[in-house]
Design a binder for these strands. Structure first.
Lengths: 181, 181
DNA sequence: CGAAGATATTTTCCTGGTAAAACACCTGTT
DNA sequence: AACAGGTGTTTTACCAGGAAAATATCTTCG
């Protein structure tokens, strides 16, 4: 069996580099530039998702539940389900399900708006606040550890380039507009 | 209502920048560095996922199906379901389901291995090959368009930094090892 | 040869997400 | 006051994915 490109070749780089090399061989006419970015972002996101799930699991939270708790914590006020949907970039149905679970766990509380009975106001319970205040630093420390292998200047650079890209994507794709005013 | 941070403030940057500012106000003790990278990668991935779904939809393919077709195309040989699972970073169950759909659509064909009846060999049909050969450049052009707002040098820089991060993640997290040898 | 251990793939079961529909409620107009 | 249009949230129906179990098959060992 002839050696073929694999991601693990000595000094051959990341898997996307390997994929790009395969395309060059199979379809040399293709502009693979987008793959270098899109493919890597997708792969990095997937791997980071795996890692961040592990510490949260210890705390009995899914990533999605954590996101809800964080939104409530960082905005530091009551939010409606609609607010939460916008803050977490998800659908109303997803938020409803998450809130059901979080309410049952005693981490969030809800009350109906006095002036508009369609609206619910959601807040962290004491327990919920304590929970997220405990989990948050652990999670961030974990992520810091994962990123630790990057030189600080490279990490800064990466953050900046990603910010540019994100701004571009949010601008050109009608990015979300959370209700923050 | 006092103005509060939102992602859309004039010149206030991307949503993650806004989130980070909220954390600085609410929990100034936190090291938000990881959010600058992890948060942005996650958001970029989500937004890019939305965009790449739109062109593929015109071609009647989901992202997952496209990935399978691409793996077959770029490796340019028959692959087993296990190969495909590794190449697309998914589970065997997911591959089984995708192959079912693609087989029904006449885009891939399968045959049982002659020496080991557990093993199936999957290949693109003529139609499948033509399909992916048509969709691929359109998809890449679309992605190139989306990334076009980035200065070329910034895009290069981003690709490189992402490659470093991906290599790090794949190394430290026991990254995947597709069967490419 | 038979049994144990391993492996490739599929099936089963469950989870969590989304789009659309449903429901309740609000606002503005006549 | 009645009605139309709009809105916030939940419910419904469906989908795709993964983990674990199931099934079929292979390899090795005594």
């Amino acid at each position: 069996m002839t050696p073929q490109d694999g991601p693990a070749g000595a000094g051959r780089g990341d898997t996307v580099a390997s994929v790009v090399r395969q395309w060059h061989r199979t379809r040399p006419d293709l502009d693979t530039g987008p793959i270098e970015i899109v493919g890597r972002i997708t792969r990095c996101a997937a791997l980071l998702q795996q890692t961040e799930d592990a510490p949260l699991r210890r705390a009995g939270l899914s990533r999605a539940e954590y996101d809800v708790l964080c939104a409530l914590r960082r905005m530091d006020r009551e939010l409606t389900p609609g607010d939460l949907a916008r803050e977490t970039f998800s659908s109303g149905a997803a938020v409803t399900k998450r809130l059901k679970r979080l309410t049952e766990a005693g981490l969030v509380a809800r009350r109906v708006d006095t002036r508009d009975r369609r609206v619910a106001h959601v807040s962290l319970t004491e327990e919920g606040r304590a929970h997220v205040d405990a989990v948050l630093p652990a999670q961030l420390a974990f992520e810091r550890g994962v990123l630790g292998g990057l030189a600080e200047s490279d990490a800064q650079e990466l953050g900046q380039r990603l910010a540019e890209l994100l701004q571009l994507l949010e601008g050109s794709l009608g990015g979300p507009r959370p209700a923050a005013f």
